[in-house]
């Protein structure tokens, strides 16, 4: 008897819960955007730099949009699975996603079977850039980029570099340097995890590594590694030169992240979203948090971002072709 009573109560509770859900979800009538929760799709694993950037931005766009914004991780295939998910949703502004240099520019170039191209989606804005740098062990003889380039020129095939994945921005940065510095012969040793890059430098297994600055900040501060040059200025390290400052022109590989939405997003919604992210990017707390992760806030609106993407398409097609990643 007691058991039956318990069962009836449970059933009643479940039914009540379901009814409540229906009632709540039934209230979504057409209202000025945004009137309900926005899903923010992160096409990478939790904990990576794009994930951290997204979560920080999500917190900061809640006040200007004045609705809940929920981060959702859909990792896989170098960001392609999450990107596909976003572009298959309704272009109503309630599903947007993070994008990166990899998912928006490099994958479409190097992966011919990828089921999307950039025109299949709406570019909302660029949010940040991540400086990438060339690092050597603090004991290494090269103090500047120029000394290193001279050594590599004089010793072709002798210098080994740890670079991460073969199509990642750090690997392409080094490739770009090899081209711009007049055809250096440096052996790239690719790897899958981030940890192995710092290990390779500290353990003396390679002479140089190309790595996002965020992964090396603590070693930099402790004086265990030295940065020869970085793609962008690094917050808190004004003394580290960019490639241009270090005397090598034309190395313009730079990693960044931004926001995308499905194709056909109405202009008013696009503007509303872009302006919310612009407001967020001026939030001092956000700038402070991101700079601790060695990321620079670098806001670009839809048109300016699209222009940058067109330029980068050209540049990366050229680099990947020279390296032999595409034919």
């Amino acid at each position: 008897m007691r058991k039956n009573g318990w069962v009836i109560v449970m059933i009643a509770l479940v039914i009540a819960g379901l009814t409540a859900l229906c009632v709540v979800s039934g209230q979504t009538q057409e209202k000025p955007y945004p009137s309900r929760q926005i899903d923010f799709v992160i096409p990478y694993d939790p904990g990576g730099s794009i994930d951290l950037m997204s979560r920080i931005f999500v917190e900061a766009v809640k006040p200007p949009l004045n609705v809940p914004v929920v981060p959702v991780n859909k990792p896989g295939a170098g960001g392609s699975i999450g990107t596909m998910f976003v572009l298959n949703t309704k272009p109503d502004g309630y599903t947007v996603g993070a994008c990166s240099l990899g998912s928006l520019v490099i994958s479409p170039i190097v992966e011919p079977k990828l089921p999307y191209k950039r025109p299949d989606l709406t570019v909302v804005c660029k949010t940040i850039n991540f400086p990438i740098g060339l690092f050597v062990n603090a004991d290494a003889p090269w103090k500047t980029l120029k000394e290193f380039v001279d050594y590599a020129k004089a010793n072709p095939g002798k210098v080994r570099a740890s670079v991460g994945g073969p199509t990642g921005a750090p690997a392409l940065l080094l490739e770009s340097l090899k081209i711009q510095a007049g055809g250096l012969n440096i052996i790239n040793i690719p790897s899958k995890g981030g940890a192995s890059m710092a290990t390779a430098i500290l353990g003396g297994h390679v002479e140089i590594c190309s790595d996002p600055v965020a992964a090396e900040v603590s070693l930099l501060k402790a004086g265990r590694v030295r940065a020869l040059a970085t793609s962008n200025k690094v917050p808190g390290f004004p003394q580290i030169p960019t490639f241009e400052e270090a005397g090598v022109q034309g190395v313009t590989v730079s990693s960044w992240a931004g926001v995308i939405a499905p194709k056909g997003l109405p202009k008013p919604i696009l503007d509303k979203l872009a302006s919310a992210f612009e407001t967020a990017s001026k939030n001092p707390a956000l700038i402070e948090q991101l700079s601790r992760e060695a990321m620079n806030v670098d806001f670009l609106g839809p048109e300016a971002f699209a222009k940058q993407l067109d330029k980068e398409d050209q540049m990366y097609t050229e680099i990947t072709r020279k390296v032999g990643l595409i034919k």
């Binding site: 981030g194 900040v217 603590s218 070693l219 601790r292």
Partner: peptide
């Protein structure tokens, strides 16, 4: 400051955001 696994990298990131450099 070398995170051996992805989860450790996440912990390190959490501390960095708090202004603590792991290393």
């Amino acid at each position: 400051g070398i995170p051996p696994t992805a989860i450790m990298a996440l912990l390190m990131g959490a501390l960095m955001m708090q202004g603590v450099q792991v290393g």
